[in-house]
């Protein structure tokens, strides 16, 4: 199980509203394209700029950086959501990514129905009566709430449900983006145990977070991004030192 990212570059196109319209396109055609081209709004942001790193068997890597540093973009590229402008992402193993709480949740459906739905998105076809559903309900500790529509859940509860489903099918590579913030400490401990278990089975975890304590607790190495480039990649303890120095110099 591993993640290999080499010379990855991701561009995000920015479309301004006026360029969205067909009218603009038609006018462009009519005037031959040259004149309006500057206003066509085809700006891009280079969100990830020539990034390379490797994550091997049993490693937990934290991705850190300022808002807009490219954390989520990098995770999305690793998860196959964004296609690289240049470079390569090679994943060895079955990958599951969790961005925020609740991929494909149907707010009107019950927690139970949503477990089946989310599992289907992850490629697992289960029934509400399968034993794995029991495990998921146990883990996320939602008790009777599981029979209620998820629109009445709190953000933390949604996060717990999504995490429980995503990790129950034992992916080889797990991508987590900023979702633990909504969980309480008891759940974070529980989640941490599960993730540790994962890694003991030679699985790989890539986790983005702003919370220094979560990064410290849950990761062994840190990838520090700054404006789409790697600022630092190494031991979590080493990163913590750098990070503290960085904070004190900025303060």
């Amino acid at each position: 199980m591993s993640i290999r990212v080499s010379n990855l570059t991701i561009d995000l196109p920015l479309i301004d509203v006026s360029a969205n319209s067909l009218r603009r396109k038609i006018i462009n055609l009519a005037v031959g394209g040259k004149f309006m081209k500057k206003q066509s709004g085809d700006l891009i942001i280079r969100a990830i700029d020539n990034v390379s790193f490797e994550v091997d068997d049993g490693e937990r890597v934290g991705v850190v950086g300022h808002n807009g540093a490219g954390k989520t973009t990098l995770l999305r590229a690793v998860a196959g959501v964004f296609e690289p402008r240049a470079g390569k992402v090679i994943i060895d193993g079955k990958i599951t990514a969790l961005f925020g709480a609740g991929i494909g949740l149907d707010p009107e459906a019950t927690g139970l129905e949503n477990i089946v739905l989310m599992a289907a998105y992850l490629g697992m076809h289960i029934k509400t009566t399968d034993p794995i559903v029991e495990d998921i309900i146990d883990f996320c500790d939602l008790n009777d709430y599981i029979e209620l529509p998820v629109k009445v859940y709190s953000t933390g509860m949604l996060g717990r449900l999504a995490f429980a489903v995503a990790t129950s099918f034992k992916p080889d590579v797990l991508i987590l983006d900023e979702w633990l913030g909504a969980g309480d400490q008891a759940f974070i401990t529980k989640a941490n145990n599960r993730v540790t278990n994962f890694v003991n089975n030679a699985k790989v975890v890539l986790l983005a977070s702003h919370a220094t304590n979560i990064i410290e607790q849950m990761t062994s190495r840190v990838l520090w991004l700054d404006r789409g480039k790697v600022k630092f990649f190494g031991d979590t303890k080493e990163w913590k030192q750098l990070h503290d120095e960085h904070l004190s110099t900025n303060a």
Binding site: A79, V81, I95, A97, F99, G100, I103
Partner: peptide, 9 residues
């Protein structure tokens, strides 16, 4: 959109 932005499906 939600699914497209989160999965490689």
């Amino acid at each position: 959109a939600n699914v497209i932005k989160q999965t490689a499906l």
